[in-house]
Write a protein that binds this DNA or RNA. Structure first.
Lengths: 342, 342
DNA sequence: GTGAAAGCGCTAACAC
DNA sequence: GTGTTAGCGCTTTCAC
């Protein structure tokens, strides 16, 4: 059994209240008492019981991290970034995965509240889920990742998807592409929505072909990426360039190209969203719209800590940059055109 | 404020003990009372407070997951697998990352104990860390992943590294390789130790060249993989085949080959340990010694739950299979020999 | 500057 | 079959 505050008090020959005061850095404790207490705590390797403390104070120094799938490298790196700032501040990290199912997610929120986690870092499955804003508001703090919940006053960290998409499309247009396709996620999540909107806007501005069939949305999975890529490439007039709107979609797209025996960039130019080992070490390396997920995790954690420190601070939504990284998966469309007409 | 057991009791016109009995499925409750309680709980959306409960019972229905780095896909997939079995049983998942630092890890154990987590799933940083066995024993249950702690009676789930390594080396030997190198991790972790031991044993059995310089051990990082690969390839007599003993090492090795302008399998045959997107979608696809990390996570969680259900059950160490998956990154050494002598 | 004591929400004796 | 109550380990008035 771990030592209790009572044992520390006895050993230090003071009352439990004095020990508690030392523990919580209260001012009115004599130097002498404080020292005896500190000594006793060290000798017993005393650590205050979190459950008891949280029952008294309503606070637990734990935060929930809710994402669709922790094995997605984007989320696992964000988790790592958040941990980097949370851990030194004494916060624990409760992981929960929603599988992108709003009902399961609601259940997770409930369980996390029951655990009295102080705050949440969460990429909600569906921004329009019923009474989501109210649910989120039951936590002392909540930071949305790349999401926007109607009616919610939650803080958020988002990415400037438009900037990277604009650069990528400008690059493709400059290369001579006119038929560019996008595979993206569901429109109930800001991240995917922003990518689609930016794609449409900049495609129009750059004079790319407007063809609704060139924009596919669906689940953010490998399967969707695979199927969408195959469908796009079997169009009468297939695209000469493709943007994969998420790391899982990219995996599917690359598999599809492989199965079809198509080479990048000769047969198709490819741009991925979010940099992972696969995009960096692919042969040839894949152009990406990149962002810094470790930094996003850090930012989210910092926002959350600030919120927990001051519930009444103004709502903050911070936007982190994305940039287009040129590598070797994009080229002139000429060859692809030839291949097609051959 | 969430509803308390008292409010439920009042609403159901029973005492708190009856509510508690219903909550904990005690036998002696009248059907009528039970129903009124259930109804009241539903109406209030009551969820028992975990802190209060855990203070009373000493149990928290939370487990700690301690690994070096959650962004390593092996660990994030194991986490996912464990979550699949833990979540439906009502357990929460507290994530903690050690960065492979035994001191930090000890600190994490202490924090997790303070949180009263019931059990641990952990890949310890250093099996020989001082009083590690005792530390682990302070938890009601503990499952080691691919580790063996001297003097500890913790359960464990391990991989049969020897089997996959034997198959891989037999394959390479069959292709005609005689100089095969291994890059692996530190010897204070069973996983790496087993791979090195199996490599040495089967290399000897198959009559491969014995050259100490061909076995490199170090940190399980991309940097180590990169540097070790470059060193091996600049040997007077470089290896004709290479086994990368971990997914991070593989990333480094592939980078090194890329920087050196070397192609697989023409210039070097490559076998990786653990299958990831990179190995599957590399051009050419990389041969791997594979295992099922999702299943490993499930297994670990099941072992832990069984331990928590019966502290006195016999210690269990389960071993899951590994298999060599032939793809396209290994070939006859002939060409490499020519290249070298040219 | 310090101690005594109430009480956070729950479970588990114990009494009836 | 049900209610009363002590107490888990802590924080926080309130006295002194």
């Amino acid at each position: 059994m771990p030592p209790t505050i009572k044992e520390v008090a006895e050993r230090a020959r003071v009352s439990v209240s004095t020990v508690s005061r030392v523990l919580n850095d209260y001012p009115h404790v004599s130097e002498e008492a404080r020292e005896r207490v500190l000594e006793a705590m060290a000798e017993l390797e005393y650590r205050p019981d979190v459950a008891a403390r949280s029952m008294r104070t309503g606070t637990s120094r734990a935060v929930g991290f809710v994402v669709s799938d922790i094995s997605n490298p984007l989320f696992s790196v964000i988790a790592k970034g958040a941990d980097v700032v949370l851990h030194p501040r004494g916060y624990s990290f409760v992981l929960a995965t929603s599988r992108n199912d709003p009902e399961r997610e609601a259940e997770l929120f409930s369980a996390l509240r029951q655990r009295r986690v102080d705050g949440l870092i969460v990429a909600v499955a569906d921004e329009r889920a019923p009474s989501l804003a109210e649910r989120l508001a039951t936590f002392q703090g909540c930071v949305l990742f790349d999401r926007e919940v109607p009616g919610s006053s939650a803080d958020a960290v988002c990415s400037d998807h438009a900037a990277g998409m604009a650069q990528a499309l400008a690059h493709l247009a400059g290369l001579g592409h006119r038929r560019v396709a996008l595979i993206a996620g569901s429109q109930v999540q800001l991240g995917s929505r922003a990518r689609v909107a930016a794609f449409r806007k900049h495609a129009a501005r750059l004079g790319l072909e407007r063809d609704r069939r060139l924009v596919r949305t669906g689940e953010l999975s490998r399967e969707t990426g695979y199927l969408a890529a195959r469908e796009l490439l079997s169009l009468d007039a297939p695209p000469t360039a493709l943007v994969a709107g998420n790391n899982q979609l990219t995996v599917g797209v690359v598999s599809a190209l492989h199965d079809l025996g198509l080479r990048v960039p000769d047969d198709l130019s490819l741009v991925a969203c979010d940099d992972v080992d696969l995009t960096r070490l692919h042969d040839p390396p894949i152009d990406v719209i990149d962002r810094d997920p470790l930094e996003l995790g850090r930012l989210a954690a910092e926002l959350l800590l600030e919120r927990l420190a001051d519930r009444d601070a103004p709502v903050r939504r911070v936007t982190a940059p994305t940039t287009f990284v040129r590598r070797a998966s994009t080229g002139v469309p000429a060859l692809a055109e030839e291949v097609r007409s051959a």
